[in-house]
Every structure is written in C-alpha cells, then in structure tokens.
C-alpha cells in the first residue's frame, strides 16, 4: 500500500473531521443544554460561507472576510434565536423539527434572493493557496492544513471554555440541571441566546473554511448537517468530548472508506464484485456505524452524566 497516499487521505479525513466537529459542537450544545433539535444548523454553516464570500470580495482579503464574518454570523444566530428558536424550548421535538425545517426553507430562499442561484468561489490569498511539503514526498495543500490546525485550535479553545471558565461552568450546570441554574439567579434566557450564537459562529466558521475549497452554494448545509447529527448521536448527545472523538472518527472512516474499501474488499471477494459493492458500502459506512453504535449503546459512545 502506498503510505504517502494513505497519509494524505488521513489528512483529508482529519480535515473533514474538524469541520464536522465545528458543526457538531454547536448542535451538541443546543441539544444538550436547550434540548433543541435544530435542523437549520446547516443553514448557519451556509450563511457563514456566503457572508464570508461577500466580505472577502468587499475587503479584498479572505482573512478580513473571515474576521468580519464571525460577528456577522453571530448576529444572524442571535436574530434567529430571538425570532424563532427561543419560542421552541418548551415545545416538543416534533415542533422543533417542523419549525426548523421551515427555517431551512427561509434561509435557502433568502440566500437565493440575496446572492442568486449560482455558487460563489472564494479566492485564497497567495500564501495560503500553495502546497507545503510535509515530509520528503508528502505534499499537501497549505489551506487544508490550515483548516485542520484551525479546527484543532478551536476545539482546544472550546475545551478550555467549557471546563475552565465561569461561562463553561454555567454551560455544564445548564446541561445537567436547568432549573437549578435559573434558581441560582442566572438569566437562563440570556445564557441560551449566547450558547446559540456561539453554536452559530462555530458552524459559520466551518462554512467559511470550506468556502475556498468547494464554494458557497445554496443547500450546502443540508447534507453535511445530517453527518453532523450522526456525529453527535454516535458521540453521545450533549457531550463535547464525544462530539470531538466521533467527528474525527467519522471524518476518517468516511474518507478512508471511500479510498480503500475496494482494496479491502478485494481481499475476500472477486475484484469485480469488490469494485461494484465498495462504492455503495463506503457511502453507507457512517450510517452503518451509527446503526451499530445505537443498537449496542443507545445513548452513544460517550453519554454525558445523568441529567437532573
């Protein structure tokens, strides 16, 4: 087996993994703390990509585009929470599903109205646009490496935020005992708004990071969000650690499965059969993984501690 290619595919898997984590982190926070099923989380990912695209063209710099897009996405998240989401907390999951499904339609069409139906490719500055040589013969696009590093940095920052700050303490307390936190005089509504906006920013950053690679397009969030749901269900709803491990795991399994499953299948079936069945199975791999995990551990791999 070609180890160079394997290493590159490993990095590609990591890249998908950290993007999934950025999406899943926000989902897991809103799930775990507000008990909210937000299908429209992918729309914030899309919003991040489009806003970043416009700001990049306006400022002429991708870096400025990202820096300015972050508060913009936070605002989009806050407004969404204010107008729709906060009225859903006391409702059933079914209501969450319906209302946020409506939100997706609103977001997709709004993007269509503002930016038109064509996708927008976002140009990278020259110093990010090249390739780096990692080892003697391993060459990898610089920007993809930047995505991985940025994702890991954000993950570390989130870990610090949740485990070592006052906000994080409230988040953890809110996840385990909502009434207790409000009884202590914390403005729970404000906390929820902030958490939702934080989740929106994380999803938006994922969208910004992917936009130079696969352009900003309508509905771009609607497929990857499902994978992010798979991540948090596999990792355990409400668990940050679970979301991180599951995101990396699923990123790697999906990427490596697509490249190597036919090779593996050829070990025990005819090459013809392997070549026909491998693409089908590799496309289903993460869903099969999720089904197996849920069948064996219905609460996911790392369920958070019991909730009060």
């Amino acid at each position: 087996m070609d180890t160079t290619l394997l290493f590159i595919q490993f990095l590609n898997g990591m890249q998908l993994g950290v993007l999934l984590f950025l999406l899943a982190a926000g989902l897991s926070l809103t799930f775990g703390i507000m008990d909210l099923v937000n299908l429209a989380h992918g729309s914030l990912y899309m919003a991040g990509a489009f806003i970043c695209a416009s700001l990049t063209f306006w400022t002429g710099s991708f870096i400025w585009g990202v820096l300015l897009a972050i508060p913009a996405v936070a605002l989009v998240g806050y407004v969404t929470e204010f107008l729709v989401i906060r009225h859903l907390y006391t409702r059933s999951h079914l209501d969450h599903v319906l209302a946020t499904f409506g939100l997706i339609l609103v977001f997709d069409t709004s993007v269509h109205l503002i930016w038109g139906s064509q996708g927008i490719a976002v140009p990278l500055p020259a110093f990010l646009d090249g390739q780096v040589t990692l080892f003697t013969d391993v060459v990898f696009p610089t920007f993809r490496l930047v995505i991985i590093l940025a994702g890991l940095l954000i993950a570390a920052g989130l870990y610090y935020l949740v485990n070592h700050t006052r906000i994080g303490m409230l988040i953890r307390a809110g996840a385990s005992n909502r009434t207790m936190v409000s009884a202590l005089g914390i403005n729970i509504q404000f906390l929820f708004s902030m958490i939702f906006a934080l989740g929106a920013v994380l999803a938006g950053i994922a969208g910004m990071l992917i936009s130079p690679i696969s352009e900003a397009s309508i509905g771009m969030g609607n497929q990857i969000i499902i994978t992010a749901f798979v991540v948090i269900v596999v990792g355990g709803v409400g668990s940050m650690k679970g979301a991180f491990i599951a995101a990396i795991m699923i990123g790697l399994i999906d990427t490596l499965g697509r490249s190597y499953l036919d090779t593996i299948f050829k070990l025990f079936m005819s090459s013809n059969a392997a070549e026909t069945s491998a693409p089908a199975v590799s496309a289903m791999l993460i869903y099969i993984l999720m089904a197996v995990v849920l069948a064996l551990r219905p609460q996911g791999l790392f369920p958070p501690k019991a909730r009060g």
Partner: peptide, 28 residues
C-alpha cells in the same frame, strides 16, 4: 434497531437509515 431508542435518537436513526438507502441508490 430504531425502536430501541427514544426521542431525539429515534428521529436521528430513522433519518440515518433513509440517508443510507439514499447513498446506496446514488451509487447504483
């Protein structure tokens, strides 16, 4: 498999099974 789970997990696992079939048909 799905009915062993409840609430949000049931929503997600039924979704996952349909996505699985979706990608399966895409690859045919």
């Amino acid at each position: 498999i799905s009915l062993r789970t409840k609430g949000i997990h049931f929503i997600m696992i039924t979704l996952a099974f349909s996505q699985m079939m979706f990608y399966f048909l895409l690859s045919l």
